[in-house]
């Protein structure tokens, strides 16, 4: 049982990690925490569902269209809603993302409010059994995608020119602008990328969680826990944090009490933020005078 719990924990944790990654990308690039990221996740899945059922497109085409749509949505959001507020208080920015999350949920509820919809898995092969352990192909794909994405982004941000650009833009927007970096366009792109990542996560995870307007909210708290554990803004941290969360949830549910599973994320967040806000891998924040 222990091994199966850990395996399922890794599978669950990969979901959290995938979502946390999307949020981390945005945070690294713009220092904004997007409370609506769960809805990007949800919307991505819904858009794909629409393409699948309304248009009758094959799965991969629908998935691709979904990711592209969300990328565009991310750019639009940045341009229309975030950029005008750039100089304002952080409270307002944070609440803008919260309001957005409610808006998307409301829209989804109008179209699908009364139902929970099924979503076809990427591949439907029967579960793999290794001895006593069971693993579904969906789990493997999620874990695999997560690993792939984290490697991609770590390379991008740490090694490539884009990464240095990102570093410059987020450390000092004015300085970056002075040397000719188009900061607003960069922000727009990163919002698009983050939304697209949310969509990818949604498409992969929806077959497991099933589609419903509130599916994002549930995941969001877990993703926060993952980011907090691992250290805000750290890619590897988000992944490790997510996996840890998943495993610990499953273990405490399996051995201690199933009612602990829900609160685990909360306790983790509070404990980490009070004891070591930087998390496992993050750096402490420096206040500039």
């Amino acid at each position: 049982m222990l091994l199966q719990l850990i395996l399922s924990g890794i599978a669950q944790g990969s979901i959290y990690a995938l979502v946390a990654l999307g949020m981390t990308v945005l945070f690294r690039a713009t220092t904004i925490v997007n409370f609506a990221h769960g809805e990007m996740f949800m919307f991505g899945a819904f858009v794909v569902y629409l393409f699948l059922h309304l248009v009758g497109a094959p799965f991969f085409v629908a998935a691709l269209l979904g990711v592209v749509t969300l990328f565009g949505l991310g750019i639009c959001i940045e341009r229309v809603l975030i950029r005008p507020m750039a100089g304002g208080p952080h409270i307002a920015l944070a609440m803008m993302t919260v309001a957005l999350s409610y808006l998307f949920r409301g829209i989804a509820r109008i179209f699908w409010g009364r139902e929970v919809l099924p979503m076809p898995p990427v591949f439907s092969y029967p579960p793999i059994e290794i001895g006593n352990l069971v693993l579904t192909t969906q789990d493997l794909i999620i874990a695999g995608t997560m690993v792939l994405l984290v490697i991609v982004f770590m390379l991008l941000f740490h090694r490539s020119k884009l990464g240095r650009l990102a570093q410059a833009a987020s450390d000092s927007p004015r300085g970056a602008a002075l040397v000719g970096i188009n900061v607003p366009a960069f922000y727009g792109t990163m919002w698009g990328v983050s939304a697209a990542m949310g969509a990818i996560a949604g498409i992969l995870v929806a077959p497991i969680t099933l589609l419903y307007p509130d599916m994002g909210a549930q995941i969001l708290i877990r993703a926060f826990a993952a980011m907090t554990l691992g250290g805000f803004g750290h890619f590897g941290g988000a992944v490790i944090g997510g996996l840890l969360m998943g495993i610990l949830e499953e273990l405490s549910g399996g051995y201690l009490s199933t009612s602990l599973i829900d609160v685990f994320a909360f306790i983790a967040i509070i404990v980490v933020l009070l004891v070591r806000p930087a998390g496992l891998f993050g750096r402490g924040e420096v206040t500039r005078v």
């Binding site: 049982m1 199966q4 719990l5 399922s8 599978a11 669950q12 979901i15 995870v205 497991i208 969680t209 509130d214 909210a217 549930q218 499953e250 549910g253 399996g254 009490s257 199933t258 009612s259 599973i261 829900d262």
Partner: peptide, 20 residues
Amino acid sequence: DLTMERGSTDATPQLLRIKN
């Protein structure tokens, strides 16, 4: 006597306990 939280996407701990 087990619980499963609303919004859960996985019932592994519960089912494993039942299986055992």
